[in-house]
Design a protein around this nucleic acid. Structure first.
Lengths: 244, 244
DNA sequence: AACTGTTTCTGACAATTTGTCAGAAAATCC
DNA sequence: GGATTTTCTGACAAATTGTCAGAAACAGTT
């Protein structure tokens, strides 16, 4: 049941190759960097063949996003299931998010492109559902850790603020920060020498603002996070170019 | 010296009309919604005439972004020069930022498009400089208020954290939040019923985390912000569709 | 009003690029 | 080895961007 005919296998392999090539092209030149003619040539097939795999160019890009989001969700899941107090597990998810954008900057960039370009109309409902589902899962994983923190009396949210609203804050800050970093060609010019460190510290202070114990004044989260990246994400850590 | 010939005046007026029409088209269909053929037709001129105003399509879009950023900078400037303690002035800038995205969602969306699409290569250095300059000014305005807070001993930043790094945190959170709101078609489904309120509260908690007095537990910033929007931005307030 | 040099406008043209589809080629089955 | 199904190709249509030589409109002068 799992063995495919050689032909079917070749087709399946090609789909992966299409996505790999497409990602590189989108990374280099955005939406317009992805030319189906050029893609087909690089792949050694005709353009028609590509349309056997994907209904249109937009579907290829959305497929890239699904890959990206699944990858992030898996890393989040790994981080959230770590041992430790909720606030450290939340820090672990932060580590995962940072590792993700630093190791796969091209993934993040493709996500950005999809966000703003109006490509959604042309895509299939099926694939859009996949994107939405990944998003919900990511929020759910983080909200779960927040609920653990509440259950263990490490934090108590003010009246009317749901765990999801706090997740929204964390999500917003990381999303916005990575987006600014990715699009601004000189962070130093803006007066921000080490943006990744700056964002980690801002996140700590946000959680401190909610009174989530242990506070960052009581616990050295910078060290914790460095340990997490070494222990929980060893292979990813090894592939980092810049030091943590 | 300031009176133009009727013809020159007409040309200048047309440039504004091009931008107005272009913004509407980009808003509706993103980068591809802006077709120069259709734009020319709506304007009652030929496509060649449009190329007399702008070197290429990308220049039009970047011109839209310059309009947007100038508008925001002016609102920030107005908010920052308000009377009051620094933390309230910072809240006023928050009000300005929120007002801006709520009153001019199309402006924000055009900014998003420019961010991810790779249109920068084709644009002129001159206009890119304008964008960069607006960005620096916005950061500078906010950082100035942060410095005021430090000078008045209302807050003291931890070792190694510059005012710009704190601004980066505020900027990231608002930017990310608005981006998520703009692209996610159902915030409610994610468990966030009132995203704008959620983000205001997250910002308050972030500043609380830095120990910036008055803390949000000591001062009712929600009321302050409502008062600011009424007093300092009366015309903008009147144009809000949804209640504050 | 007529003449003249300049500015502005037009629309046909070339160059790209996306998506389609009838027929060719290849693979699979019996 | 022949029949049937699947897959692939490349020519075609349609849309869109940017160019430019010539047409039209304008402004200044006599």
């Amino acid at each position: 049941m799992s063995t495919l005919t050689p032909k079917k296998q070749a087709i399946q392999d090609r789909e992966q190759k299409i996505l790999e090539l497409a990602r590189r092209m989108v990374l280099e030149g955005g939406y317009h960097g992805l030319g189906l003619d050029s893609l087909a040539e690089k792949l050694g097939v005709s353009r028609g063949t590509i349309y056997n795999h994907f209904q249109c160019k937009e579907e290829i890009i959305l497929a890239l996003v699904v890959e990206t989001m699944s990858k992030r969700r898996d890393m989040f899941q790994r981080a959230a299931s770590m041992h430790g107090v909720p606030r450290v597990r939340l820090a672990a998810i932060g580590v995962a998010a940072e590792l993700f954008v630093r190791l796969y900057p091209d993934h993040f960039r493709v996500e950005q492109i999809v966000k703003s370009d109006s490509i959604w109309d042309k895509t299939t409902e099926e694939r859009r559902m996949l994107v939405r589902s990944c998003q919900l899962q990511c929020v759910g994983i983080v909200a779960g850790v927040v609920r653990d923190g509440i259950a263990q009396n490490h934090v108590s949210l003010p009246e009317g603020l749901t765990p999801e609203a706090l997740v929204f804050g964390l999500w917003s800050m990381t999303e916005g920060a990575y987006s600014i970093i990715a699009t601004s060609d000189s962070m130093a010019e803006l007066g921000i020498a080490e943006p990744f460190q700056a964002i980690r510290r801002n996140i700590h202070h946000l959680l401190d603002g909610f009174g989530w114990t242990p506070l960052s004044t009581e616990h050295d989260f910078e060290s914790s996070m460095e340990q997490i990246v070494r222990d929980e994400f060893p292979s990813e850590f090894a592939r980092l170019k810049q030091p943590w």
